[in-house]
Simulated assay, not measured.
Amino acid sequence: MQLLAVMLVGVLACFLGYTRIEAQEPVEKLEKMIAVVEANGATVEQWSWLAKEELDSVQDVHTFYKLLDSLVEKKVAADWKVEQSPEGYKAIAVKKFTHYQERLVVTWAKENTKDKTFVTYEVKGTEWDDAILKKMHKIFRQNPATFTCVQAVFDDKIEGVLQNKAAEILEDLSAKPIESLEEIAFVSVSAYTEEWKDALAVNRQKMNVQVALRNTDNKTTVVVGTPIITSEY
């Protein structure tokens, strides 16, 4: 639970301070992370990819629904499920494919009398499809912040210090550790690799990759994310 809390705090931080400099296509990072975890003896169970952008085009309910209609016209969403709360509105569209599932979310709310609108496109699956990137280019107006994660499992439970395996994975990613959280059954390490230009500022240091390992009764799970892990672990 503590590790999950740390990650959720990190998610908030990255949305506020994430900078993008000549960002690589997310599929390249995804392929690299999959190759690294497999080279270290783990089997990939699932990957996830998330893109998020803030818009300033929504000022009221009318423009909120206008935005939803525009996404339908672009054929990137259909069958919106709209939720209303005292904070604002949220619209969700989910679609399942053979090897992945996508979820498009549009939120609009007021924060200190200022309108805040976010569009989030999240995909989870087992096989990549180039149609995902094509759809992303239709959804977003500029260059959204992107977050990529790979979850894998080792056939046998890793005996000994999980930190050692985390260090091996980071070495294969050419990443230098920045900070870590260690307990008996899990470890989480934040690091920076110059191979990926996207980065967060954490305690005046750059970071753009996280590795987390957890031991259960009979197996060890590993999650690798850039610039941070955004999935629950």
Rank of each mutant, 00 (worst) to 15 (best):
I132C: 02
N203E: 09
D115Y: 10
Q151D: 10
W128Q: 12
F118R: 09
L213E: 05
H137D: 13
K96Q: 14
E171V: 03
R204Q: 14
V150A: 04
E183M: 01
A201I: 15
N208W: 02
L181Y: 13
K114Q: 07
N203D: 07
K90C: 09
E194I: 06
P144G: 04
D172G: 13
T148A: 05
D155W: 10
N164P: 01
D130F: 03
V119W: 02
V161L: 15
L162K: 09
K206V: 07
N218S: 11
E195K: 12
Y192T: 09
N218T: 11
V211S: 00
E111S: 04
Y100E: 04
T117N: 03
T193N: 03
I184F: 12
A212H: 11
A175D: 01
H137K: 15
M207K: 14
K206R: 14
K176T: 14
T120K: 11
P177G: 09
S190M: 12
T220N: 13
I229L: 05
A212I: 08
E195Y: 07
K95P: 02
F186G: 10
Q210A: 13
V224Q: 02
R141K: 11
E159W: 07
I92W: 05
I228L: 08
K135Q: 13
L170H: 06
S190W: 06
A131C: 04
N143S: 13
D217T: 12
E183I: 00
Q205C: 01
L133G: 15
T146W: 05
V150E: 02
W128Y: 15
T120W: 05
V153L: 06
D115F: 08
D129Q: 03
G125Y: 11
P227H: 07
K165C: 08
F186Y: 09
V150N: 00
K135Y: 06
A175K: 05
V187S: 01
F147A: 08
F186I: 05
A185P: 04
Q163Y: 08
D129T: 03
A109K: 12
V106G: 02
C149S: 13
I228R: 07
K197C: 01
A93E: 04
